[in-house]
Design a protein around this nucleic acid. Structure first.
Length: 972
DNA sequence: ACCCATCGATACCGA
DNA sequence: ATCGATGGGT
């Protein structure tokens, strides 16, 4: 890829940002000015110009995982393989990786665990009684959650401000003397809690997200040699969305970019994360850290019409804490003007409409959406942003009444625990954990699993209540006495037998194993769902799969005692904390009006945008001060909080306005109360932001004649109309290609329905061995050698105890793994070969598919490359080469290498580990490449067309994990 | 200066 | 649901 390509189609200012090479660079990218284009092409440019030798020398910080993925996707379009080789990650991911690479230096165990926000709360809830609370005690005990959340947010802020428990205590001993005694006491108590929390974390060998950055910074600050190594490893550092980095993250980037070759990209007018401690002046902080930095301002807007931009600019000019304003006032030595110019001409100016009620506001939206759609604007190009005081129900209802499809993002969407099938699984587990839980048993008995009739259920519950006995006892008695209907008798007996069997299993088995046994082995419910043609059943299977992935496995990782009752308690705690992850990601291709909060809209664009609920006290909303705050003496100097709040709200409004490409509606109503409540006595006032943006009073919508107003009934809006299929490129892994070729129905089970399957012992063994091997190779890349004992430690840590037939069986597999590792270790120590890449991601486009995968290991010697994949299975010496030559996996891996690097690897290998390492070799040829291509083409076409008919054969079925649920499986 | 209507808490969001 | 803070009205 030449320079011409990299710079083609760029504006002057973009070109300046992409090509600057004098040192640190701040790209002040106004809204819609092609920020991602600039950063991805700058990456390409740095490589093309030899500023970094290899893409792997680039470190790119992003704000979220999603942003990292998007950037990789975009970079993929432009620089082919280049960016894929770089570290593109969030601040926390970078911190974690640095700590793991240097765990001994950082004084950490190699397998330290990081608690996410939720596990952090569960952790503290578990240790609540160990906190040294005094005056706060009643509150902490009576309403733990009302205490924990503010405390953790306080600790988070302290870590962000680099205030250690010791520093806080020292402050309490000194400066607090001048405070009123109750205030000083509160600070002492908080300092003690902070210190105690920190000790608890260390005692359990875990850390929270705050520690991740704090410890990384401490490590790098304390080891100049190590820091210098990272500077050498990453000669250039880029940071995206710089306005939304926290103080601690800023310190990390200042350290890693300490050599001065850094690019920061951001826009201070879009900083909307102040509530989690992000300062408004990050971009200035960059300029302070790198005083010689060049500033490039991007002002050419590609998104909106001039009318929309002008209104947005008028609004944001009311903020005094922004770089443009500071520059105008001469407070910073930079001349910055952010006058945005559209390439689309004047267009329609934004309109403001005021209504007597939300209902009318919502009806207006629905009518207008209908008009826009009739004029050719697809629904998915229309967004409605709402505020959080009331649910977005009125808008959804009005859209539904017009027959307009919509999708709702954000917290009002139903989460995992609102799904019936998940509730049912929880009822089952609760019944096991507490046989006296009659409600859960009732739910279970009436569910599609047992279908106990209404009369039988009524009989049982009334008896249970009358006799004050748990439903379970009454049920057992009724079955014994034969007092139920005929079918009821059968169903109840079945339920009792299942419960007894599962209780038996639960005593000695992890929760996930028990649940799995219930769903598959005892009741066959999962099979029934997977075989059903009903789309709702398919969804239920997906939900079960997600439940296993995101709840059961998560518990396995944190559980101190993995048994059903503890699992139930864990889930209850998380639920109480408000945890309810989204399920069934919204289809991106669905043609429906996008309803979301202002925050969620960040980074998106739509042809038409409706901003709703624009009244004072609402937007701007009221300031809420955190319950606990660091004393002024320990906090960094900041602007007054009410001003900070107002300006951030204005930036949020600005973000909302600038999502619109062509049409922008600003809407407000006199009264936002739900219909049932008494109407307001005083009308809500139009948001000052509306007036600032339009510079005048908006037009008032005439009140509709009373007769035409229809009293609306409440109730859930109907579900959105089904949309069209997604049409993005198909992403395919080797596993997907292979599974589809083996049997399309297997593909459907694994990759479409994701039917959870009990891990086969061989798979567990393979995973654990792979992780140990990976750790060895990673150390090797850094010039260290892991002793066998450490390999075994990693192996055991990666081990999961589910799925084994017996303890003896598990022992045997563990021995097998240890033998494989020993053989591997002997082999490697003797060979001394040096891996170039370990677990390396690759991707290439073939036809309509993007093929992705990971190479276990690549060795490059001179310009020759060797790709290696490890197998834990056994093979005869003679058969090894044959296996390698016939391996579709190696064929695809070789093709991937060729596409990424332009040359063909000189050899590909399978390395079988037991009992001694046996190497199977193959040389990539045109024939091998053609085989890979044909496989990819067939799989792409088949998957695209949705052809998932079973292809039973003895070979496929005998080794298929889905044999037990597959209606087409051959009898063996 | 004082009263009373009104709102938000719970948030919005990220690792 | 209730309560404290806030801002508008008198």
């Amino acid at each position: 890829m030449g320079m011409a390509d990299i710079l083609s189609g760029l504006t002057e200012e973009q070109r300046a940002a992409v090509t600057y090479r004098g040192g640190p660079l701040l790209v002040l990218a106004g809204v819609g000015t092609g920020k991602t284009t600039v950063i991805t092409r700058r990456i390409a440019h740095l490589i093309a110009e030899g500023i970094v030798e290899r893409p792997s020398q680039l470190l790119v910080f992003t704000f979220s995982h999603q942003a990292a993925e998007e950037m990789l996707d975009r970079a993929f379009d432009w620089v082919r393989y280049a960016a894929l080789d770089a570290w593109v990650a969030t601040y926390h991911a970078v911190g974690e990786r640095i700590l793991r690479e240097n765990a001994p230096l950082a004084g950490l165990p190699p397998d330290f665990r990081v608690l996410d926000e939720w596990d952090q709360r569960v952790f503290l809830l578990d240790h609540l009684t160990e906190l040294p609370v005094r005056t706060l005690r009643p509150r902490a005990l009576r309403q733990p959650l009302r205490f924990l959340t503010p405390l953790l947010s306080f600790i988070g802020r302290a870590k962000d401000d680099a205030v250690s428990p010791e520093a806080y205590r020292a402050w309490c001993d000194g400066a607090a003397a001048s405070l009123p005694s109750d205030e000083a006491d509160l600070h002492r108590e908080l300092a003690d809690c902070y210190a105690a929390y920190q000790e608890l974390l260390e005692r359990d060998g875990v850390m929270d997200f705050g520690d991740l950055i704090v410890r990384t910074v401490r490590l790098l600050e304390g080891r100049p040699g190590l820091l210098a190594e990272y500077h050498q490893r990453f000669p250039h550092v880029l940071a995206d969305e710089f306005q939304d980095t926290s103080r601690a993250e800023l310190r990390l980037i200042e350290l890693l970019a300490g050599h001065g070759n850094a690019t920061a990209v951001g826009d201070d007018d879009q900083a909307i994360y102040g509530f989690r401690g992000v300062p408004w002046d990050n971009l200035l902080a960059f300029l302070r850290a790198f005083p010689l930095a060049k500033v490039v301002v991007l002002t050419q807007n590609f998104r909106s019409t001039q009318g929309i931009l002008d209104a947005a600019t008028r609004l944001i000019r009311a903020n005094s804490y922004r770089l443009e304003a500071l520059s105008l006032r001469g407070e910073i030595p930079y001349s910055i003007t952010k006058e945005l110019t559209s390439i689309h001409g004047p267009g329609h100016p934004p309109v403001h409409r005021q209504f007597p009620s939300v209902e009318e506001e919502a009806e207006f939206v629905a009518r207008e959406v209908r008009k826009l759609n009739a004029a050719g604007v697809p629904y998915r190009e229309i967004a409605l942003l709402y505020r959080n005081r009331y649910r977005p129900d009125p808008y959804l209802r009005a859209l539904s009444e017009e027959g307009i499809p919509w999708t709702l993002a954000g917290r009002f969407r139903a989460g995992m625990f609102d799904q019936e099938v998940i509730r049912l699984m929880m009822s089952f587990l609760r019944t096991l954990a507490d046989p006296g839980d009659s409600q859960s048993l009732y739910h279970l008995l009436g569910s599609p699993i047992y279908r106990l009739g209404g009369e039988d259920l009524a009989l049982l519950t009334s008896r249970s209540q009358r006799e004050h006995r748990p439903l379970r006892q009454v049920l057992a008695a009724a079955v014994a006495a034969g007092s139920l209907s005929e079918e009821g008798q059968q169903a109840a007996a079945r339920a009792l037998a299942d419960l007894a069997a599962c209780e038996d299993l639960a005593r000695g088995n992890p929760a996930g194993r028990v649940l799995y046994a219930f769903l598959m082995e005892r009741t066959g419910y999962l099979q029934a769902l997977a075989q059903s043609d009903d789309p709702a059943a398919g969804q239920a299977v997906e939900h079960i799969a997600e439940f296993f992935e995101r709840v059961v496995h998560r518990f396995e990782e944190v559980a101190r005692y993995d048994r059903v009752p503890w699992f139930v308690r864990y889930v209850d705690e998380l639920r109480e904390l408000g945890w309810n992850p989204m399920v069934g990601e919204a289809e991106p291709g669905v043609d429906a009006v996008q309803v979301m909060t202002f925050h969620q809209a960040k980074g998106m664009e739509f042809v038409a945008v409706f901003l709703t609920g624009l009244v004072e006290d609402f937007f701007p909303g009221r300031i809420t001060r955190p319950t606990f705050v660091l004393p002024r003496g320990l906090r960094g100097e900041d602007i007054p909080e009410d001003i900070a709040h107002l300006e951030e709200q204005r930036r949020l409004f600005y973000v909302g306005m600038t999502r619109a490409k062509r049409r922008l509606y600003l809407l407000s109503a006199d009264d936002y109360r739900p219909p049932g409540e008494a109407p307001r006595k005083r009308m809500a006032k139009v948001s000052r932001f509306v007036l600032e943006a339009l510079g005048e009073q908006g037009e008032r919508s005439p009140e509709a004649p009373a007769l035409l107003r229809i009293r609306r009934q409440g109730g859930e809006p109907p579900p959105p109309a089904p949309g069209s299929e997604g049409t993005g490129p198909l992403q395919l892994s080797f596993r997907q290609v292979d599974d589809w070729l083996t049997c399309p129905l297997k593909y459907r089970y694994v990759h479409v329905l994701r039917v959870p399957i009990r891990l086969h012992p061989i798979v567990i063994l393979g995973n654990a061995v792979h992780q140990a091997i990976q750790a060895y190779h990673l150390a090797k890349v850094q010039g260290r050698t892991l002793p066998l004992a450490e390999l075994e430690a990693v192996f055991r840590h990666a081990w999961r105890s589910e799925g084994f037939l017996s303890a003896a069986h598990e022992e045997e597999m563990l021995r097998h793994g240890a033998a494989a590792l020993a053989a591997f270790h002997r082999f490697e120590e003797a060979s001394g070969a040096q891996p170039t890449f370990v677990e390396k991601f690759f991707a290439f486009v073939e036809g309509e598919a993007k093929v992705i995968g990971y190479w276990d290991r690549v060795d490059r010697i001179g310009n020759q490359a060797l790709i290696i994949d490890y197998k834990t299975s056994e093979v005869g010496e003679e058969a090894a080469d044959h296996r390698a030559r016939e391996s579709l996996q190696l064929a695809i891996y070789a093709l991937g290498y060729e596409r990424m690097f332009g040359d063909r690897p000189h050899e590909v290998q399978l390395r079988f580990l037991t009992p001694e390492v046996v190497v199977g070799r193959a040389t990539p040829t045109d024939r091998l490449a053609d085989r890979a291509l044909a496989a990819i083409r067939d799989a792409t076409a088949g998957i695209r067309s949705g052809a998932f008919a079973a292809k039973p054969s003895f070979a496929a079925c005998s080794s298929c994990a889905y044999r037990t649920i597959c209606p087409s499986a051959l009898p063996l």
